[in-house]
Design a protein around this nucleic acid. Structure first.
Lengths: 113, 113
DNA sequence: GCTTGACGCCTCGGAATCCTAGGTGTATAT
DNA sequence: ATATACACCTAGGATTCCGAGGCGTCAAGC
């Protein structure tokens, strides 16, 4: 309730998912694991965030999904980036860089003498 | 409705406000201007976001406020960082860096060969 | 045989944050 | 006289995330 903010920054999840899917087709459950691994435990995506986000992205036409078998033989929903999704990813990367740059400008602002 | 995301990243506003106030006491109206200036128009803080955020931060005990006269003679509510606020700022800066680092890790992740 | 845990999918409800759009009042410039 | 900048504010809707719960399969351990 108070101060600890281990959350993903709201608005960042879409970017992360799109990027991970761009690295190769994966199913949802694996996406959250990859995000956690690649970020070295910097992010932990909850399932209650993940699946609604995937449906959101699919509805926007950025991801396509089809059921397929895992290496271990289970059925899973594999996601792939659509052409629109690739453009969206580029846009979101650009957005992120603009935002991160702007935040850096403010954090680096020196105190007046 | 669709794609354009000129918004401030949700969760970042508190950090920006705390940092700007840390640079020197200012009133609310000036905070939004400073954020816009320092970020070189990277951010534009709407009043409907600003004032609720200020009240939020004050209620948390991170900012203190008192009415005072502007250089131009008007009354305005000047905000200053409390001791708790300074700690909170440090925590949020650390959080931001952790998050920005994690995002960078993912964005830099190479596609598997 | 049974139970636990990992795998893999899902939804509902609450909490938090932001924006839009409205509103108030004063001073200055046109 | 009117418009614009200053300076404050709130209410409502939209979005996004998390926590908690649920379903079903399969492998491992007891």
């Amino acid at each position: 309730m108070a101060a600890i903010k281990s959350d993903i920054l709201k608005g960042t999840l879409d970017l992360l998912i799109l990027k991970v899917v761009a690295l190769g087709e994966v199913h949802g459950y694996a996406i959250s694991q990859r995000i956690q691994q690649i970020s070295r435990n910097g992010f932990q995506v909850q399932q209650g965030s993940l699946y609604p986000a995937l449906h959101r992205l699919e509805k926007q036409g950025w991801l396509s999904a089809d059921w397929r078998a895992t290496e271990t033989g289970r059925e899973a929903k594999y996601y792939a980036l659509t052409r629109k999704g690739r453009k969206q990813l580029e846009a979101e990367v650009a957005d992120w860089e603009r935002i991160a740059g702007a935040v850096a400008l403010i954090l680096d602002a020196a105190e007046p003498s």
